[in-house]
Amino acid sequence: MTTLLGWTRSGGRLPPGCLAKRMVNGNLVEIVAVSELSELRARLALLQKCFRISDGFLPAPLGHDAMCTDRMAAAFERIGDCGQFSLHLHFVRSDEGAATAPTTGRGFLRHRRQSNSDARKARTVGAEVLRDISERLKPRGQSLRPIGTGFAMDLLFPRGQEASVRNLFSSGQLGVDIHLGQLVASGLWAPVGFAAEALAPDG
């Protein structure tokens, strides 16, 4: 059984460990791994190598193998020349609450409710922080989702803008004057998040 990695335009180069399996939809080539990849992390690493050297690479969603060809071709036209930067905003956990946590039942419930309220406020601010960053960067697409301790956002950019966006992140020019947590940005990834949305069976 082979592992589907994605699609690219015919005639493009492929990294070691990958091969072009067949033509689909006229001028697109289906790329598969030479050997089966049991771990999604290994699949993501190989998919990233394809993205680095292939022209207009569209990754296959990591959770599914079967694709709708028409939908895949449309997604290729929209995001095939793009990559994504991924942002993860983690909130700082304060130790003040632990030190003053009450031991009585009623006090515990009230304390728990206050903690949850504070966490909700922090998440609201966190979402606004990421939206504000997105507005300044003006990506071609964006996807915001909650994670355990904060928010994550994927931003879609044409490959030609990679250097300028990367420079903004690494230079700290997007610094936000708020004591909230830590923002980790990484990229440029193959557009795995946007491909998953565009190629979802019910999307």
Partner: peptide, 19 residues
């Protein structure tokens, strides 16, 4: 009250993240 300071930002390449 927590001290106000710029949001701590870190940038990593995909290779950094994967390894």
């Amino acid at each position: 009250m927590a001290e106000r300071r710029p949001l701590d930002m870190v940038f990593a390449t995909p290779e950094d993240a994967l390894s």
